[in-house]
C-alpha cells in the first residue's frame, strides 16, 4: 500500500523560496551580461552646441561620446585629429590601452584595426601623415574627460593616437598636448573593456565610428 505523504507548509515555503531564488539568479545573470544597461546614449541632434564645428561624436559599444575640440589651445593637433576623423580613419580602431577608471587610449591606425590587430606592435602604429609638434599648454587642467594626444617618450612625436582621462590627472599638465574635452558620455568610456593585469587589451573594444557633428 502506498501512503501519500502530505507536503508540510514549511516545505512549501522552501520550494517557493528556491523557485524565487532561481529566478533572481537567472535574472541577475542576464542583466549583468548587458554591460551597457543604465548607460545613457546621448543623441547629438537633441543638444545645442556653442561651437558645432568643434564637436565630434565617437560611437563606442555602449553609445555616443560627445567631444569638443579646442583649436585655440592646440591648432595643429586639432587640425590633425579632425582630418583623420573626416577621413573615417578612426572607424573600427581598437581601444588598445585601457586602465580602468583612469585612462583609455585609441588611434593606432596601423596596428589597431579590427580584423587585422597586431598584438605585438599595437600602440606603436602611425597614421602615415608624419609626426606633429607637441602643443603643450601649462594652464590646461587635465580634469576627468580631457582628451590629449598620445606621444612616445619624447615630445614632438604626436600623430594619430589619443587618450581620454577618466579621472583628474594633474601630473599630465604641461606634459601632453590637450586637444579637447568630453562633454557627454564619459560613462560610455568607463564601460570600455579593460583587464586586471594589463594596460594592453586582449580582444579589445573598438570605436564603431568617429565623426564630426557637421560631417
Amino acid at each position: 500500500m502506498i501512503r501519500k505523504i502530505k507536503v508540510s507548509l514549511s516545505e512549501k515555503i522552501i520550494l517557493v523560496f528556491l523557485i524565487l531564488l532561481s529566478f533572481v539568479t537567472f535574472g541577475t545573470y542576464i542583466f549583468l551580461k548587458k554591460e551597457c544597461l543604465f548607460i545613457k546614449n546621448y543623441k547629438p541632434k537633441n543638444i545645442n552646441f556653442k561651437n558645432p564645428n568643434n564637436i565630434a561624436i565617437l560611437n563606442a559599444p555602449c553609445g555616443n561620446v560627445i567631444i569638443e575640440f579646442y583649436p585655440e589651445i592646440s591648432p595643429n593637433s586639432v587640425k590633425r585629429i579632425k582630418a583623420l576623423i573626416r577621413s573615417n580613419a578612426y572607424d573600427n580602431i581598437a581601444f588598445h590601452r585601457v586602465i580602468k577608471n583612469k585612462l583609455i587610449q585609441a588611434g593606432d591606425l596601423e596596428f589597431g584595426k579590427r580584423g587585422s590587430l597586431n598584438y605585438g606592435k599595437i600602440g606603436t602604429g602611425k597614421s602615415g601623415l608624419g609626426n606633429i609638434k607637441s602643443e603643450i599648454d601649462n594652464n590646461f587642467n587635465y580634469t576627468s574627460g580631457s582628451v590629449g594626444l598620445a606621444r612616445t617618450f619624447n615630445n614632438d612625436t604626436e600623430d594619430s593616437q589619443f587618450f581620454i582621462v577618466l579621472q583628474d590627472e594633474p601630473l599630465f599638465e604641461g606634459e601632453y598636448t590637450p586637444v579637447g574635452k568630453v562633454l557627454y558620455g564619459l560613462e560610455v568610456l568607463k564601460k570600455i573593456k579593460s583587464q586586471r593585469h594589463s594596460e594592453y587589451i586582449l580582444r579589445p573594444d573598438f570605436i564603431n565610428s568617429f565623426k564630426m557633428l557637421n560631417q
Binding site: 585612462l103 598584438y119 601630473l171 594589463s198
Partner: peptide, 27 residues
C-alpha cells in the same frame, strides 16, 4: 606563449613612471 606572458604581466599603471621614468615613486 609570448602573448600569454604579455597579457598576464602585472599591471603597472604608474603615471609618475610614465612621465619621468623613475619607478617606485609616489606623490
Amino acid at each position: 606563449i609570448l602573448l600569454l606572458i604579455f597579457f598576464i604581466t602585472p599591471l603597472k599603471a604608474n603615471t609618475i613612471y610614465n612621465i619621468i621614468r623613475i619607478p617606485n615613486l609616489e606623490i
